[in-house]
Design a protein around this nucleic acid. Sequence first.
DNA 1: GTCTATAATAAGATAGAC
DNA 2: GTCTATCTTATTATAGAC
Lengths: 209, 209
Amino acid sequence: MAGHSGTRGLGRSTRSEERKAEIIRAAMEVIAENGYRGTSLAAVAERVGLTQAGLLHHFPTKEALLVAVLEARDQWDGATVMLSGTSISLDALSYMVEYNSDRAGIVQVFTVLAGESVTEDHPARPYFHGRYRLFRELTAGSLREEFGDRLPGGLTPREAAPLLTAVMDGLQTQWLHDPAEVDMAKSFRAFVGLLKGTGAPETAPESGN
Amino acid sequence: MAGHSGTRGLGRSTRSEERKAEIIRAAMEVIAENGYRGTSLAAVAERVGLTQAGLLHHFPTKEALLVAVLEARDQWDGATVMLSGTSISLDALSYMVEYNSDRAGIVQVFTVLAGESVTEDHPARPYFHGRYRLFRELTAGSLREEFGDRLPGGLTPREAAPLLTAVMDGLQTQWLHDPAEVDMAKSFRAFVGLLKGTGAPETAPESGN
DNA sequence: GTCTATAATAAGATAGAC
DNA sequence: GTCTATCTTATTATAGAC
């Protein structure tokens, strides 16, 4: 082959891939601000100094762009807590929530898309369906490894898994609406305390309850 | 005044109000299926046998229609658990979740709009901001009445309130995606059990670790 | 109160030049 | 790889007849 497409190391990217990554980043921003349905290709294109037609050269349809965004998100929290395949301890989840507390942008993309995704023919529907299911399974598995058939708080791993997912999602929504009032990380730790049955989460005599 | 607009009893509705209610119902359906941004006035109009222009006679803008939908939703779960003003016991919330398990349509409107509402200039943003805040306050107040400064599980009312809200929201999303896998009512009861500190075989001896 | 007609934008996608 | 130009379709909202 005289071409140059087989000579790249695995960590390297072509210029085209870099451009795509740039577009994906812009798309995440715009989706965070407007949701998928509220996002126009022109708005995304503008952020990277392209025209709408220029953008479509890299992603042939709007939906293709969304798919790329979803894949990027997987990579992202795969890097943070390793979703796919590996184990998820309660501590790892706490860390992830804490980490997210500094990344409102990313949290917002996820929250908006998760909400939109429950509608009939939303292109992210299958993604979220699978993601929730996988997350519950991995979480339940990890909890079983960590605690056996019952967590100290009294729940089984399979009972705890959907609650963990729910608490993370739900706290994100409230936090995005009212970051001054809702302390996502602290709330999550309180919930973990509940699961672990450690009575009151070893907190200091802080503000009034 | 010779008109007929001051002679109605309080439970009665004019024909115009009935029409509006009909439109609101249709709007909820369409929003549940497509989100607010994905909803066209024409689609709503069609469901009640009107043209788009005909609909705009009753609600002058799309946003006005959304506001009406939001108000209707408040009435709705005001009727179920009485949000505004009254007290919300854990049992009442459990009942509400159970009740919702038979109303996927309504749950879906709420879930989609809550998700969309975190975006920058979404018309439902102030509504949800206020609603979450109010809900946390009422819940915290009720828990304090019911349990005092600490719930049996160890949390303070103010710690429990955002978690309750989060669990309800988060379970709804998962349930909408996978009703066969996620038992919303049962999961919620498990969470209430955690708050009440029941079901823990090991009676955690107060603090310690 | 509801319609037809239309204005004014805006969107996703394609064709083809450079 | 990116642009201009264009097609096609949708959308909110208004004007005015019935």
